[in-house]
Amino acid sequence: MSFSPHPLSTPGCNSIQEQRDRWEIKRSRTAKQLVRTEQRYCQQLELVTTFFVEILKAKGTLKQDIRESIFSTIKAIHSANQSLLIHLENGYFGKGFDKFCSHLHHYNTYVDNIYNANKVLGIQLKKNKAFRHFKKLQEARPEFNNQKLEDLLQLPIQRIDQYKHFLEDLTSNTSPHNPEFEQLSRAVTAVCMVFQRIQDNTQYHENHLQLCRVQKLLKGRKLKVLAAGSTQPITISPNPKEQVILEYLTLSNVPHMARRHHQIVQIFQGWSLSLRKINKLHYLCLSRVLHHLATYSHQVPDHYPRLCQLPPLVALHAQQPPRPSERNHNSMHRT
């Protein structure tokens, strides 16, 4: 009976190697998914550039300024992603994203224009019969697989979110000693900046929609309401409800709102001292402002905790009908 010698291995070495193996498995899985989705993404971008941008330019169905308003920098994005795909398919993830990040300004331009693009596209579909017919014919092609142009135009926005998750997974499963680690880390930072830009634009768009809804409540009045984010002083009506609405509208730009937190505190303190004057519209404005201030709470540390105590009181009062004694008092005051 013979025994062959085997090298002894310590438990610590085994656990480290097992951890590295798990990292490699996760990294390989993420890499394959990234390549597969990037191939599909480039195919979809090619549909837009080939069957819409190039043909519309050749036919002259849309004017150049309108065409650029709708499609923005999608051709440049397609070119940058084709180069990225070549690197990914060859396994050069760090190098590929390192070069790709130098083209992210095309995504920034596209992100800033997306809401205007949707608006212009909607107008053209209503007013331009030739473009409406052209769009219908192109979307009927088998290559589109029932995909609409509106959905395809949203893909670069959605892809940034996907890049963020893919890069975070790749970086977390890459050894710090790997040459690609620093390249992937830089790519994560760059993509996260574009992602934050998308979030900020979405929030600004929601603020604008909120402004439009409140403007409808002031319909018929001679007072003009400023656009969201305006820093210009305004003449405030003595009507308490209008005053609250207009103060809210002038503070709808979040960074500017944080800088003017002392004025917000004065408004809200006035509300807390006179809860009987608060209605559902006041509560709506208060909730929106507090929601934005939550992001900038580090800039208003002394006031934000106290302000957060107001919404429950305001909501409670806004949901309750006035008491009979208050109705009588108000009617006597009006007479």
Rank of each mutant, 00 (worst) to 15 (best):
residue 2 S to A: 13
residue 5 P to F: 12
residue 7 P to G: 00
residue 8 L to R: 03
residue 12 G to H: 07
residue 13 C to H: 10
residue 18 E to D: 07
residue 19 Q to S: 10
residue 26 K to N: 02
residue 28 S to Y: 08
residue 31 A to N: 02
residue 31 A to Q: 09
residue 36 R to I: 05
residue 36 R to L: 09
residue 36 R to E: 11
residue 41 Y to D: 05
residue 42 C to N: 14
residue 45 L to V: 03
residue 52 F to W: 07
residue 52 F to C: 06
residue 58 A to R: 08
residue 60 G to M: 02
residue 64 Q to M: 06
residue 65 D to K: 04
residue 66 I to C: 01
residue 68 E to Y: 10
residue 69 S to Q: 15
residue 70 I to C: 13
residue 72 S to E: 00
residue 73 T to K: 12
residue 74 I to K: 00
residue 82 Q to V: 04
residue 86 I to E: 11
residue 88 L to W: 06
residue 94 G to Y: 08
residue 97 F to Y: 15
residue 100 F to G: 07
residue 101 C to T: 15
residue 103 H to R: 06
residue 107 Y to E: 00
residue 108 N to L: 05
residue 109 T to F: 11
residue 116 N to Y: 02
residue 121 L to E: 07
residue 122 G to H: 07
residue 124 Q to C: 07
residue 124 Q to I: 03
residue 125 L to N: 12
residue 125 L to R: 13
residue 129 K to I: 14
residue 132 R to T: 14
residue 139 E to Y: 10
residue 141 R to L: 15
residue 148 K to R: 15
residue 150 E to M: 02
residue 151 D to P: 14
residue 154 Q to L: 09
residue 159 R to H: 00
residue 159 R to S: 00
residue 160 I to Q: 09
residue 162 Q to P: 02
residue 163 Y to Q: 00
residue 163 Y to S: 02
residue 164 K to W: 02
residue 165 H to R: 12
residue 168 E to A: 09
residue 183 Q to T: 14
residue 184 L to V: 09
residue 189 T to W: 07
residue 192 C to N: 08
residue 193 M to F: 06
residue 194 V to E: 04
residue 197 R to Y: 03
residue 197 R to L: 15
residue 203 Q to F: 06
residue 203 Q to R: 14
residue 204 Y to F: 15
residue 206 E to G: 02
residue 206 E to F: 02
residue 210 Q to N: 06
residue 216 K to C: 00
residue 223 L to G: 05
residue 225 V to L: 15
residue 227 A to W: 08
residue 228 A to P: 09
residue 229 G to W: 06
residue 231 T to S: 11
residue 232 Q to R: 14
residue 239 N to D: 15
residue 247 E to F: 12
residue 247 E to C: 08
residue 248 Y to I: 05
residue 252 S to G: 03
residue 260 R to C: 08
residue 265 V to W: 13
residue 271 W to V: 02
residue 271 W to F: 01
residue 275 L to T: 05
residue 284 L to V: 12
residue 287 S to D: 05
residue 290 L to N: 05
residue 291 H to E: 11
residue 295 T to K: 09
residue 295 T to M: 07
residue 302 D to K: 13
residue 313 L to P: 03
residue 315 A to R: 11
residue 316 L to F: 12
residue 320 Q to K: 12
residue 327 R to V: 10
